[in-house]
């Protein structure tokens, strides 16, 4: 296959990048326009002479947007830490130890990742409601950790398998217990894999919508995706605020993606490709 890139290739590449990024660029341009210029003739002109940050101000003043961000951050962070911790135990056992039923358990875990969440929502909602956990952080953290476990276990098993067995044997000969081997030998070597898993779990918890929509209906506990989706007024949609909020949510993700793209790609493609 032709591995050299010609000038036509770069033209195509630029076009592709522009098309993918266009919605963001347009939303960014809209978010700094005064509200009046979002409608009528000026709506289709990307630039404005009256640049303003009033939409951004309004997002924080007229909506509890900071609260949404905080809720999302708390829920996603705790979910990530807990899911990765629990998953790393299971993944270690599956990758390193020999016991009966290992493949069956892995199969079971993987099949859970194919479950449609809508099929679990009514019992989970009723149980959480009876426990008084609707409109609480825990009400989201419990389902989130469970539904991110399959992905975490699968990724960590792949990473753990790459660590050479000799190291463990050596540790054992030196008299280290299983826990010591895990904490002192395996974990430090698996850190890059754990970090990758953590990023993916964090993103999926941050983006989750269905559980957040049904379980936390109170403004006090809404997460960002639900918060933005509910910006819609009764008669009109506040486009200025919507575009500003979209930019606020997107920018940190763009930075994260730029920083960790290698890890994210390795996480997304591990398991999908046999090496």
């Amino acid at each position: 296959m032709n591995k050299k890139a010609g000038p036509m290739f770069y033209v195509f590449l630029a076009l592709f990048v522009f098309l993918v990024m266009f919605p963001f660029l347009w939303v960014l341009a809209s978010s700094i326009k005064p509200v009046a210029e979002l409608f009528g003739d000026r709506a289709f002109i990307p630039f404005t002479d009256n640049m303003t940050l009033e939409n951004y101000e309004s997002v924080f003043v007229n909506y509890p947007f900071l609260k949404y961000l905080w809720n999302s951050l708390v829920v996603s962070t705790i979910t990530t830490v807990y899911a990765v911790l629990v998953a790393s135990f299971a993944a270690y056992a599956i990758a390193r130890l020999n016991f009966k039923g290992k493949t069956v358990i892995l199969g079971l875990v993987l099949s859970v990742s194919m479950f449609p969440q809508i099929a679990t929502i009514s019992p989970i909602y009723i149980v959480l409601k009876n426990l008084g956990l609707t409109n609480s952080y825990l009400g989201l953290i419990i389902p989130y950790t469970t539904f991110t476990l399959p992905l975490s276990i699968w990724l960590l098993v792949t990473f753990f398998r790459k660590i050479p067995f000799d190291l463990e044997e050596a540790a054992k000969i030196d008299g280290a217990s299983l826990m010591q081997t895990y904490w002192r030998v395996i974990l430090p070597l698996a850190l890059p894999g754990i970090f990758t898993t953590a990023i993916l779990v964090f993103i999926s918890a941050w983006n989750e919508f269905l559980f957040a929509l049904t379980i936390n209906t109170d403004d006090e506990f809404k997460t960002v995706p639900v918060g933005i989706a509910m910006f819609e007024g009764q008669f009109t949609i506040p486009w200025g605020e919507v575009t500003a909020a979209t930019v606020i949510v997107t920018v940190p993700l763009v930075i994260m993606v730029l920083l960790f793209q290698r890890r994210i790609v390795s996480g997304l493609t591990s398991g999908a490709v046999k090496e």
Partner: peptide
């Protein structure tokens, strides 16, 4: 690297947020 990052951004943002963005477009 830049192209790869570009590719990842639509995937990374919350679907609900991107849906609202498209509603605007």
């Amino acid at each position: 690297g830049l192209v790869r990052a570009t590719i990842l951004i639509p995937w990374a943002i919350p679907t609900a947020v991107s849906a609202f963005m498209w509603k605007y477009l």
